[in-house]
Amino acid sequence: MSQTGWRATLPPLATTALLLLLWSAVVRLARLPSHLLPPPEAVLVRLWQGLAVTGDMVPHLLATAASALMGYGVGCLGGLLLAILLAEFRALERTLHALLLALQSVPKVALAPLVLLWAGFGPRSVVLLVALICFFAVFANAFIGLQGVDRGLRGLFAVAQAGRLHRLLHLDLPAAAGPVFAGLQTAVGFALVGCVVTEFLLGTQGVGFLIENSANSLDAATAVAAMVLLGCLGAVFSMLVRQARRRWVFWDRGDAMALPGSDGA
């Protein structure tokens, strides 16, 4: 790692260490009972145990990761496709746009109980809710991006009598890539929120279930450990999206990106 690399990573590492120390000190000095807030060591031990010794957390982690990934993929793809359709067909835009905007302002997690009714009490519900949330996040951004394509350039392609597909691939989509990736980045955090909320309700498996279940049985160490897992999951997803952006939108160095991590899930 280069020197500047260390300069970038060292401060956040130091801050994290400091916060952990502070946490540990507060728990000890205030003599907090461990079912309210366990000391960080207890959480680390529980993580080690759950992942490497008994492995009881692994299936939950995998279940959440799989649902999030699948819902994210389906939702983002759907959102992008609909944005393209609406940007291409004015009639479709006129009929659907107002409705979509109205739906967008509904907090999608509020649909979780309904989604359970529709898709049944299984992982399918988690995927469906995550997909719904990601769909709207990406649709809104992609649509704005596609609308913002320079009119002169569109004219240039029209004068050259470029086909619709050619224009889409060589002008519209690359031009909208910045906003699309902003949507993809936001959707990462949303996907995890959707997962956890549905898993709370489902009560069968997943990291959300783990949090809820262990909190109910006053096992705060497990609950906090599960939250750490969620954070890591979010960070990894987020990093992958950022890597993809850096690779495919190499010309746009502007960092108008959402914060990494899981939006307070």
């Binding site: 350039l153 004219g155 240039l156 009598q161 060589h170 031009a175």
Partner: peptide, 25 residues
């Protein structure tokens, strides 16, 4: 056509930008 702004495609090299109308046609 030449516009007020260059309106080049930032993801293409200078040479490929010049060739944009050829590809589009």
């Amino acid at each position: 056509i030449v516009f007020q702004q260059p309106t080049l495609l930032p993801w293409k090299t200078v040479l490929d930008n010049v060739l944009v109308p050829i590809r589009a046609m």
